[in-house]
Design a binder for these strands. Structure first.
Lengths: 138, 138
DNA sequence: GGTAAAAAAGACAAAAACGGTCTTAAAGGG
DNA sequence: CCCTTTAAGACCGTTTTTGTCTTTTTTACC
């Protein structure tokens, strides 16, 4: 349970690859795809969602490609994961305003809330810089 | 992302309902299903997996039904969730023996490990007794 | 301006997972 | 033997995942 999808995995691999490049260097999707072992067209889609959120910048045409939208130290793993997987919601109760339907009876609610917060906190605490440099955080 | 499935939700609702009964009382699946708003045949399946793991005991025939396999205080939320959803694996890296394929490069690995441990710890810390009594733990 | 190179956008599709249902069997009580 | 209830497993429609393919747009360069 609670498994990251391939998309999430690919997203991380791809953007970490970008984070490893010298700042300002523009990289082709094809290069990232090959280097990370991710299907190119799929990765392209992922990078498009990154671009919409400003996590990466993109340039079209000859000499085009992608680079990080801001310094690697300013991009958290949470932002990356949520960009492609959506918000961290371990249970439906937590999606809207505690809309369990069975709110009063839902004693599990606070447990999911806590899990949600813990995961968020951990992912917030890791930046692309950490990942690119292989920092031993834990 | 990281969402509990319906099966997981139903499983919790169902077994918590059992935990609320007076110990030793045998309850029909049909009653639990109606009380918790879970499709009966689906819930029956879920209870079957519980039975295999000893989380509940079952009796067939007239007067049959289900009851907890041990005291509610001895059943953790983790056991319930893992019974129906499988082990807590936020990332494929963590499933086998760190079988990332790309092990050395996988700097995210420790992050998922930590998330896995945090979730496990939280779920381990909640028993069916807590849930049945609506204990405010967090 | 024309052409080639790239990303953007969106339609499409196979495969797997989800969320069940249905049927048959087995066991127990009266 | 018959009724009740769980056990087991086949089955099935829908949604999500995991992509691909095609067309369009933008840009650089000649």
């Amino acid at each position: 349970m609670m498994e990251l999808t391939r998309k999430g995995e690919y997203a991380i691999r791809g953007i970490v690859y970008l984070a490893k490049q010298s700042p300002g260097k523009v990289i082709l999707v094809s290069e990232v795809a090959e280097a990370t072992g991710v299907p190119q067209t799929f990765l392209a889609k992922i990078f498009q969602s990154f671009a919409k959120l400003g996590l990466v910048n993109s340039f079209r045409g000859t000499g085009g490609g992608f680079l990080l939208g801001r310094p690697a130290a300013k991009i958290t793993l949470r932002q990356v994961v949520e960009a492609v997987e959506g918000p961290i919601i371990p249970n439906r109760c937590l999606s809207d305003e505690g809309n369990c339907g069975r709110t009063s009876e839902c004693t599990v609610h606070p447990v999911w809330r806590r899990i949600q917060e813990e995961i968020a906190a951990i992912l917030d605490g890791v930046t692309l810089e950490d990942l690119a440099k292989g920092k031993k955080s834990l």
